[in-house]
Amino acid sequence: MSTAEIQAAVSAIYAQQVNAEFGKERYALFLKPGTYGTPDKPLLIDVGYYTEVVGLGRSPGDVVINGHVNVYNRCLTTDAAGKPSNCIALDNFWRSASNLTIKVAGRVDCQAVTNFWAAS
């Protein structure tokens, strides 16, 4: 799959799972050994509830993501300007990432140089 196809698939899963705290769906995103995304066209994986991202190599260095694998705080409301508000990280333990290397790329401001994993 191309990076664009992978991005579309993971974004669709995230859109479904971002608020599925007690949902019935479960997802595992398995990545074969290789490099995904580039510094110029990063792969940005936001991980929702009941989703895991797994590298299938022998070691974490066998699967490299140029981009992000993030779990953000869940924002329950928006303010009058449409910006997220009432953001919490109370049950982020129903998701995981394992056996891969993340070379942070993409995003802006404080997200440009770090991967973000909100924890309960």
Rank of each mutant, 00 (worst) to 15 (best):
Q111D: 10
G23P: 01
W117S: 09
R74S: 08
K83M: 10
A8E: 12
S85L: 08
Q7F: 07
V18N: 05
K24V: 11
L56M: 15
V53I: 14
S85E: 15
Q111R: 08
A4F: 04
V64Y: 04
A9Q: 15
A15E: 13
D109W: 05
D91S: 10
I45C: 04
G23K: 04
A112P: 02
C75G: 06
L43E: 02
S85K: 15
Q17C: 05
A9P: 01
T77I: 06
E5F: 02
V104W: 00
G106F: 09
A105K: 07
M1Y: 05
I13P: 05
V108T: 13
P42Y: 05
K103M: 05
N86P: 06
L43F: 06
P39K: 15
P42E: 07
F116A: 12
G67Q: 04
T78F: 11
S85R: 14
L31R: 02
R107S: 09
Q7L: 07
V104N: 02
Y14D: 06
A119H: 13
P42T: 05
W117N: 09
V53S: 03
I13E: 07
R74Q: 13
A112I: 01
Q17T: 07
T38C: 10
L56V: 03
L56A: 12
R95M: 11
D91W: 11
S2Q: 08
T77Q: 13
A89E: 10
L43Q: 03
Q16L: 12
Q17V: 03
C75A: 12
G48S: 03
V54F: 07
L29K: 05
F22D: 10
G61S: 11
A118Q: 11
V18W: 08
P33E: 07
S96H: 08
Y36A: 03
R58G: 15
Q111V: 02
A97C: 05
Q111L: 15
L43H: 04
T38N: 11
R26A: 04
Y72F: 14
N66C: 10
A119S: 14
F116G: 04
D109L: 07
A105V: 06
Y36E: 02
T78N: 13
E21I: 13
N19M: 13
L76P: 01
G57N: 06
